[in-house]
Design a protein around this nucleic acid. Structure first.
Lengths: 245, 245
DNA sequence: GCTTGACCTTGTCGTAGCGGCAGGGTTTCT
DNA sequence: AGAAACCCTGCCGCTACGACAAGGTCAAGC
């Protein structure tokens, strides 16, 4: 038999057969005078076994082991491991589909998939057009992957629902074009820091000193006066975290 | 932030981030004087979205589309397709596990995974030490992948259960070292061909002329006298297939 | 001041299982 | 005799990075 013939017989492609030769899964058959590979029925039987094993999802390397070892016990063991692996994959897929279903069911799906707990929190917050509030929501989506966990969101809920917080955001917005020594900065920073309850701080691992890379990056994201407010708030909060370990 | 910092923040590796830059999924940030990449909070938010999307199993190319398009509708569509894809994978895995369970349950599992129908057929056949019978069982395992289908095995069952067939195998075995013109050949070939019922021929697509690659390969698998028997049987059977289309 | 260790940089190779293509020879049908 | 349908070898491409290699940078400790 030539390669196309045996390939059609066992239902695989000639390319796959050559690949099996290449990796040593199937020995090269003898050649005809013209260089064509000449296959025997025994080759076909072997290829049929290979096909059935690979269709189960067995990697080629393990197929080789099974064919090499004078099978029996080896095969059952390998298939057992394969089943365990497939079971794991199945659980992973089901978990992902569970998350997906939750996302698709909620027509909100802002523009990024968020944890259900955070979606819940964002829903509970009053809507506002404040750019500062929008930016904070982005930071929350970062918190979602960086920290995660329902405890944070539970601690944040009173803050999110408090309409007074909106006024703080608006006052921050008003500092957009202001200078870094604007007189409104000190009071706003004090009030913002005071608005954050201890429970929230307890849930956030450790922001680190303001001079940290993340702190610098955060400040760089704001215009001067707002950055100064953020800097003071961070300083106050980290001091509070240190005082109450 | 430097790359290691932002990587730890969003829970991925620096290598992955560089990879995202390389494929254009995330734009390169500006560099510090020493050449280090300098990341902003916005980058972190983007990376967090990327991470959540990839964790769902979304390929990076589609993640790029979702981030590029001013999302909303696009996202839901992509996630819908993803869910359909995952559902398909889940079905495939379940099917494979179903087959695996059947194989593992049956302590027989000769040395290759066979279709349940074929296993059933082999069980129904009387055990024998005949080499010719063993070879035929290998050919059956080839038939399993080449043709498949319960109808073939149903048609073969009376043949498999017939103890008289064993005598035919034994007579074939006796021709092992014989010459190609042995006087026992003609009678044995006739009887073997006669033993194959029409129902079996009806289920086998078309063997093709004896001179075909497969026919040649099959004959090459037998010593001279046996090959001559097989050749005659094949000839008779193909003639019968032609007479009754 | 000098070393050590933990970072960062670029680049290349490897992964599983083939598909696709290039560039060439063979056989077979018309 | 030309075209279609085979066959050959060999190399690139795919996913989503991990694992090097070979070097530059920076803070801390001796």
């Amino acid at each position: 038999m030539r390669i196309g013939e045996i390939a059609a017989l066992v239902g695989i492609t000639p390319r796959a057969i050559r690949h099996y030769h290449h990796i040593g899964l199937l020995p090269e058959p003898r050649r005809q005078a013209n260089g064509y590979r000449s296959y025997s029925v025994r080759d076909a039987v072997l290829l049929a076994r290979i096909r059935r094993l690979t269709e189960l999802g067995l990697p080629l390397e393990e197929v080789r082991d099974v064919l090499a070892d004078d099978a029996g016990r080896e095969l059952a063991e390998v298939l057992g491991e394969l089943d365990a692996d497939l079971a794991r994959q199945e659980r992973e897929i089901q978990e992902r589909r569970r998350v997906l279903a939750a996302l698709l069911e909620d027509p909100l799906t802002p523009d990024a998939p968020l944890s259900p707990a955070l979606v819940e929190l964002l829903k509970s917050a009053p809507t506002t057009a404040s750019p500062a509030a929008a930016k904070d929501r982005e930071h929350l989506s970062l918190l979602d992957t960086a920290v995660g966990g329902d405890a944070v969101y539970a601690a944040l809920r009173p803050l999110a629902e408090d309409p007074a917080v909106l006024r703080l955001y608006e006052r921050l917005d008003e500092l957009d074009g202001a200078a870094a020594d604007d007189p409104r900065i000190a009071a706003l920073a004090d009030e913002m820091a005071a608005a954050v309850p201890d429970e929230v701080l307890a849930e956030i691992p450790y922001i680190g000193p303001v001079a940290t890379g993340f702190g610098q990056a955060l400040l760089a994201d704001y215009p001067p006066a707002q950055a100064e407010v953020v800097r003071r708030v961070m300083q106050t909060l980290t001091a509070r975290m240190h005082r109450r370990p």
